[in-house]
Amino acid sequence: MNESLTIDWQGELLQLLADRAVFWPKEKTIYIADTHFGKAATFRKVGIPVSEHTTMEDCQRLAKLIDDTRAQKLVILGDFLHARAGRSQPVRNLLFNWRDQYQKLSIDLVRGNHDLQSGDPWPELGITCLPDPTPSKKNTWELRHLPPEEEVDRPFLAGHLHPGYRLHGKGRDSLRCPCWVVNEKRIILPAFGSFTGLKNIKHEKDEKIFLTNGKEIQELG
């Protein structure tokens, strides 16, 4: 299993998983954000050649995470499907095959901005679609896609930003990787999808940044 790092957040122990996910052992729940399934297919529609290899890889990673953690619940914090044009046969087949392996898994999706445009996932996938924000089970925190710009009272987990951080060394040396942005009130998850970009973020004083290369995790600073 790839590396994980346990943090104490809102009185609960959460594991950051190097595969760009968060695991809550007590509730056997995996949180991921921004899978953007169907993005490659959307590109192909306009003549840009991208294969579904990234979708295959993402399904495999997700399967392995569920096996390793024995999770019973998966929560997707928005942008499950990339675009309406991406609702294509190859994507559907891959997702259906994956779902067949985990029939007992309960899946929630907090609708993100992309989901609103591309529509809810195929009903056969058995995904419960929820509005943004939705309180988590037992009301511990809120599940969001868009992190609110203003201060909010309730702590939350969110996606949308695809946070990435660029480190500069001497000379031309530089390195960029996905990260979690964590403070007392919120956790922003990195995008789970392999065919997604990064948005560079700044390191604010009250925040912790955890970088990952998909295998290991390093806290910044």
Binding site: L167, G169, D173, S174, L175, N213, Q218, L220, G221
Partner: peptide, 9 residues
């Protein structure tokens, strides 16, 4: 990778 991250940070 992690050595690089440590050094650069």
């Amino acid at each position: 990778w992690s050595e690089r991250v440590k050094r650069m940070s």
